[in-house]
Design a protein around this nucleic acid. Structure first.
Lengths: 138, 138
DNA sequence: TCCTACATTGGACTTTGTCTAAGTCAAGAT
DNA sequence: ATCTTGACTTAGACAAAGTCCAATGTAGGA
């Protein structure tokens, strides 16, 4: 993701300190943060950054396809910077840890035409749930 | 679901007008309503019912396993009375409408052993996304 | 350097959901 | 049939997550 900022500038993005910091936070780790967590980490690097800007920037990254929005629990959405290869999520039912996984096969094809009710099916999200090794041992 | 109230009474539930009305709303249709929609429909039948009671009752139904809580969009949770048959969801990306669908094949088997990272995978949730016919036409 | 369209800010506002204290009532006990 | 009691309901305050807006600031081209 180190060339993310270059790609975005190529698409006409104005490169501001705030956007750079948000991109840096997303790039830094493989955990999926909530918007508030992104804001907190960004504020460590750039104290005056506002919540609105973080939300705006995340929204733009999502609509540009650079970042995925994941909502597994009906609470805060989480932002997943690993948008460039398709993957799904494996979530521990006890501790909530999320791992990226790669199922085999064409997942959309699993839905027969007569089960599509006229929808134009464009995407599929799969969440596997179970106990992670640490929680299973405890 | 017509014997739902009987089952619940067997489990020590006090049978109140409010709970009857909430169960009736859920039973009435195959759409998955948000808590607010359930409240609105319940209020048609019992005008004084409060939001807190609707939330309480839905929460109890969920923890008793009679109803499933579905959060597909990070906005309002929806409540799915069809808890007794395995099924997945087809969600309209624009309006949020949810339909129950039944994909073919064993969905858990789609995750290879080497992608399980030691988890005991117990369940899988699949959300297909696309435009519903109404939104596609608009 | 100057301009200006685009970006940022802070705070008010909305939506969704939770909590609490006080009042009400279903259903078993008498 | 009435009483009693603890579970249930209520209204409204509160909280968390997110959106919107008018005023202000600034990146990058001319």
């Amino acid at each position: 993701m180190s060339d993310l900022l270059e790609r975005l500038r190529g698409r006409g993005w104005r490169l501001t300190a705030q956007r750079r910091v948000v991109a840096e936070v997303l790039d830094g780790d493989h955990v999926h943060y909530t918007a508030d967590e992104v804001h907190a980490k960004a504020a460590n690097l750039l104290p005056e950054i506002s919540r609105a800007t973080v939300y705006n920037t995340l929204g733009e990254l999502v609509s540009l396809g650079e970042v995925l929005e994941v909502s597994t629990d009906g609470r805060a959405k989480r932002y997943d910077p690993n948008a460039h290869h398709a993957h799904q999520h494996l979530v521990c039912s006890r501790c909530g840890t999320i791992r990226d996984v790669h199922p085999s096969g064409d997942l959309i094809a699993g839905l027969p035409a007569e089960e599509r009710f006229g929808f134009q099916v464009a995407a599929v999200e799969v969440t596997y749930r179970g106990l992670c090794p640490a929680c299973a041992a405890a």
